[in-house]
Design a protein around this nucleic acid. Structure first.
Length: 269
DNA sequence: ATGCCTAATGGAATTAGA
């Protein structure tokens, strides 16, 4: 079972890029982020015509997540638990059944968190957009603990907006005061990992220089000024099924590309 | 230090991304 996570940066602007990628790459499942569309406006038909089921959790203008799958999607759940007042569409779950076992799939678009305000001691202040990011990560942690306790194959994949280590940025110095790389952000990410999750890509290699995002600005792609912020976290039961994990770098060179590329895992499920 | 570029909204300039 080949599963990809892909921040597509607007499904309506990216439809041709996305469908041509689907046709050639043939993923079994795609966790999509930043669909930037309400559910009713999501262009389901051209994707369904390629043999995929579509489940969306959209909102107007920004954010929005979806799951696109050749396999039937069961027990759909929309929205990250823990705050009924949160109106941002950043979380969707579904179960797929493979040849051997069922896998619970969680697709997520973690808040960016910039800009960050700092106090007189240079410490980040937990308010505004950065406060929302950390609060959202606390809720993610809570959901992750429940998944872990269920002792089933499950994964959380998506745009985490977290640069886990210096090795995950071409120019880590430039990100020191950024919500994606602040120690408090990385600590919150590690706290989730430390529940017992496997970060799929780092289970394959410790090598630096592997990125999943290159800014549209300042010729970042041409200069390979990238960061690795799209991740898969696996429960132990899911990690046992993993046969491979890789980043499909070349997608960034397609016509009208997203600023992110797909990250893949293969499961013997 | 800031903007660079792109998408959505709404029908121009602003918000948001990272």
């Amino acid at each position: 079972m080949k599963i990809a996570t892909f921040n597509i940066n607007g499904i309506k602007a990216r439809l041709e890029t996305f469908t041509s990628w689907l046709e050639s790459a043939q993923p079994d499942v795609v966790l999509c982020q930043e669909i930037k569309s309400v559910d009713e406006a999501f262009p389901r038909q051209p994707i369904e015509d390629l043999g995929y089921n579509v489940e969306t959790h959209g909102q107007k203008g920004f954010n929005g997540v979806a799951i696109v799958s050749k396999l039937p999607l069961e027990d759909i759940s929309r929205g990250l638990p823990g705050d009924d007042s949160d109106e941002q569409a950043r979380w969707i779950e579904a179960t797929v059944v493979g040849d051997h076992t069922a896998v619970r799939l969680c697709g997520l678009y973690l808040p960016n968190g910039n800009p960050v305000d700092f106090d007189a001691d240079g410490q980040p202040i937990r308010d505004g957009k950065y406060g929302y990011k950390l609060d959202w990560m606390d809720r993610l942690h809570a959901r992750a603990k429940v998944l872990m306790a269920e002792e089933m194959p499950a994964l959380m994949g998506g745009d985490y907006n977290i640069i886990p280590q210096s090795e995950d940025a071409a120019n880590p110095k430039a990100w020191e005061k950024d919500a994606l790389f602040l120690p408090t952000s990385r600590q919150a990410f590690r706290a989730i990992l430390n529940e017992g999750f496997t970060e799929a890509f780092r289970a394959r290699t410790q090598a630096p220089g592997h990125y999943s995002f290159w800014d549209y600005q300042a010729n970042s792609w041409e200069r390979n000024n990238g960061i690795r912020i799209d991740h898969f976290l696996l429960t132990p039961q899911c990690a046992d099924l993993m046969t491979d994990c890789w980043i499909e770098r070349d997608v960034r060179a397609m016509t009208k590309p997203s600023d992110h590329v797909p990250v893949w895992i293969e499961l013997d499920a």
